[in-house]
Structure formats: C-alpha cells, structure tokens
C-alpha cells in the first residue's frame, strides 16, 4: 500500500509548483493535477492521503469536483483553498464532507495542520471501512433465522420474548444465540451490540 499523499488540484501552474515545493520540503508526498477532470481521469481509488483543491477553477469548479469525486467512489478528505470566505459554497462543501477550508494565503502551519488532520481522518476512515468490511463478512455467515434472533437480541429482548415473537421454542433461541456468539467471535451482549452498530455504520472503531 502506498504512503499517504497530498493530491493538489489547481489551474494555476505557478501556485501548484509553489505548494508542491513547500509540502515536499515539509516531508510530504505530493501529486499535482491541473483540473478536477485531470484528477478524475486517473485510477486513484486505492490512493491514501487527502486532496487540496482550489474552489474557483474554470470548467469544473471545486464543488462540482467534490461531487464528481464522491460519485466516482473516491473517499479521500478534501481541503478547499479559497480567496475569500464565500459562505454559501462553504456550507455546501461542508455538507458534502469537506474537512477544511483554508484561505489561499493561510500560514503554512495552518496548511500543514489541515493536511495532517486530513491524513488522520483518511486513516481513521480507512480503518473503519476495513473493520466494517470484516464485520460484514462475519455477519454473512449467519443464517436467516440467526439474523432475526440477533436483531431481537440487540434490541435488549429476553429469550422468552424472542421465542414468542418468532414463534419458536425458548431453547431454540438459546441455541441460536450460542451459534451467533461463536460465529461472530464475541463474548458478551455488549460486544455483540457494538459489532451490530459498526455494521449499521453508526459507530467508529475504537
């Protein structure tokens, strides 16, 4: 797996060169793109790191680029650079999950902090996605009846209630619960609930 990289998208060649110099001198991996379309045309689904994009670009502007990125399945966090605090576009970009907004001439400390925050978030999201995938695989091994029972368990229902809800014997419920804990490799109901939440995408990996 490649190391985390800063992907810079800007239509201004001189600016691209300057930012590249700074980030490389700060020890970061950098890739540059002259436009959003340029970025999207390259196979970068497995890339790690973050994207720094100008908000105002001819052709595809920053917001349109962000939207296209999400649709194309890119998951890297985006840092937008802007000349002035344009509130409507800020709100709109935030809604789509931009990490940060920086003024084009913000001090380099702010820029580097934003990059490291974005890297951290990318990393966390990546771990989360991996975990989710794993949990999903474990859940896939459950039978339909076991899944039904699990849904009742995580709602905090007693075995008796589950038996009556599903119209099965209480002992059968107990057998199902044993099979579930074995298959999902958990020891307690609390652990089971946490996995369940991860599966639903409602919780972060701790």
């Amino acid at each position: 797996m490649s190391s985390p990289t800063v992907h810079i998208v800007d239509d201004d060649e001189s600016f691209l060169r300057a930012v590249t110099r700074l980030l490389r001198a700060s020890g970061l991996e950098v890739k540059t793109f002259m436009s959003g379309a340029d970025f999207l045309s390259q196979p970068l689904h497995t890339a790690r790191g973050c994207v720094i994009s100008d908000l105002q670009m001819p052709g595809m502007n920053g917001l349109a680029f962000q939207e296209a990125m999400i649709q194309a399945g890119h998951s890297m966090p985006v840092i937008f650079l802007t000349g002035n605090g344009d509130i409507p576009s800020t709100v709109s970009a935030m809604k789509q999950g931009a990490v940060d907004f920086l003024e084009k001439r913000a001090p380099k400390e702010q820029l580097l902090e934003a990059v490291s925050r974005a890297f951290a978030r990318d990393e966390a999201e990546r771990v989360q996605r991996t975990l989710q995938r794993e949990v999903k695989n474990r859940f896939a091994s459950l039978s339909d009846r076991e899944k039904e029972v699990l849904a009742e368990v995580v709602r905090g229902k007693m075995n008796k209630e589950i038996a009556s809800d599903l119209g099965i014997h209480e002992r059968t419920v107990k057998l199902h619960r044993t099979a579930i804990t074995t298959k999902l490799q958990v020891q307690s109901v609390a652990e089971l609930t946490r996995l369940w939440l991860i599966l639903q995408g409602k919780s972060q990996a701790s």
Binding site: R21, L22, A25
Partner: peptide, 25 residues
C-alpha cells in the same frame, strides 16, 4: 470584486508558498 480578489490571491498565494518553501530549504 470577488473574482478579482481570487485573481490577485493566485500569485500572492504562490509567492507565500514559495517563500515558505525557501525558508525550509
């Protein structure tokens, strides 16, 4: 105005980044 501010920020931003990079070098 806003568009022109951007037009100015582009070279100014590049100057700043270059200066910061030079410091590091």
């Amino acid at each position: 105005a806003s568009a022109l501010a951007h037009e100015l920020n582009q070279p100014l931003g590049a100057i700043l980044r270059n200066a910061e990079a030079a410091e590091l070098f």
